[in-house]
Design a protein around this nucleic acid. Sequence first.
DNA 1: CATCCTAGGAGAGTGTCACTATCTTATAAG
DNA 2: CTTATAAGATAGTGACACTCTCCTAGGATG
Lengths: 216, 216
Amino acid sequence: MRLAELSERSGVPVATIKYYLREQLLPPGVRITAKQADYGEEHLRRLRLVRALIQIGRVPVATAREVLAAIQDESQGQHARLGTAVGALRAGPQPDPDDPATEAARREADKLLTSLGWEYGMVDDYPPYRTLVAALAALARLGYPYDTGHLLPYARAAEALAVCDLDLVEEYESALEQVEAAVALTVLYEPVLLSLRRFMQVQESERRFVTGRQGG
Amino acid sequence: MRLAELSERSGVPVATIKYYLREQLLPPGVRITAKQADYGEEHLRRLRLVRALIQIGRVPVATAREVLAAIQDESQGQHARLGTAVGALRAGPQPDPDDPATEAARREADKLLTSLGWEYGMVDDYPPYRTLVAALAALARLGYPYDTGHLLPYARAAEALAVCDLDLVEEYESALEQVEAAVALTVLYEPVLLSLRRFMQVQESERRFVTGRQGG
DNA sequence: CATCCTAGGAGAGTGTCACTATCTTATAAG
DNA sequence: CTTATAAGATAGTGACACTCTCCTAGGATG
């Protein structure tokens, strides 16, 4: 199909698709002539994935490019490919190295990961690790406790989530579909999970502050 | 303390504090003279909360203003105050009403919430609800299933998270501290949780694709 | 009292980022 | 040959979180 049709079927404006092509979020179409290109179903699928990453996942364009590169990289094994793709997501704010809270946060993060059985080293440049450290440092700055005891319940929840995630991923046959699903589900279930958390907080607060106010 | 000292102790540039004052994210200092103001410890605490919301939580300034207003609103009961403050957080992308996927997503969201025991109506303008619908619609657009069966495990995880959250909140005495803690912990544990999810995905993928590749 | 220094306020400017509008050129169709 | 359309390049837009600069009013000091 032509660019115009790709635009129509995806609902993405032509100018935006051109932008994605320029930014290498979308592979170029197959050249028909010097001035015309043909796009297939996989372009459509890729385009929808890009939109999901950027619009729902708020993933920066540069990050999305890395993630997509990892998805397509057939040279790695499935595990490594998945780790790279998922790890590239949501770099979040960098921890401030000048802040003394960062160093303490780093130690606590290492302790937590160790107690979770993490054996792959602390990979200082793995984006989720940096995100974790920055978030813990922010907690410290606000005076909230963040020791292993407080964090472990969240880690257990994360573990349960990861099992669900991989269950969903394994429903797919091909390696490519699996990595794509891992990325898409990681990103798209985030807002689902976080909004459900809000709802559940309200329910739980009702249980504690209203229903059973006098110990019911 | 003066603005300059507030800036020094918080690490936030003077110009940025002025901006927050202008945007009403920070209450004005107590006027000493017509041209000088005095800021107290609660300004410092509030300033750090604002920074956490904006920098870690990526909360838009307008949203942060609403959240802070709800925190300070003493006219509501604790439950309502908490619901308003937490609900105002992370509005996320609005669902596109023209998209037919949105309608289906809305029905599925309602079904899920009903099966979770949600009894407060579907509050179409409650931001977490909109976020949920938009995310489900995005899943549909990408062709991933999102029925109650798939979503329930995530909802159960969210429930566990909410219980942890409220446990942490109830450690505080005053109503103000509790609402502040609810907001801060909701926002600051998000990156913690999401990065732990990444780590756990990698561990789980290792378990499935490497360790037990041939059925171990 | 004059002077200088600093605090605080207001408005405009900056940087970033995801688009988006325009212009150019080429080519397929008529 | 002419014209509509496609693709590519380039510059502009809008939102947003700051941030810079100027201005004015006190307060401190000689």
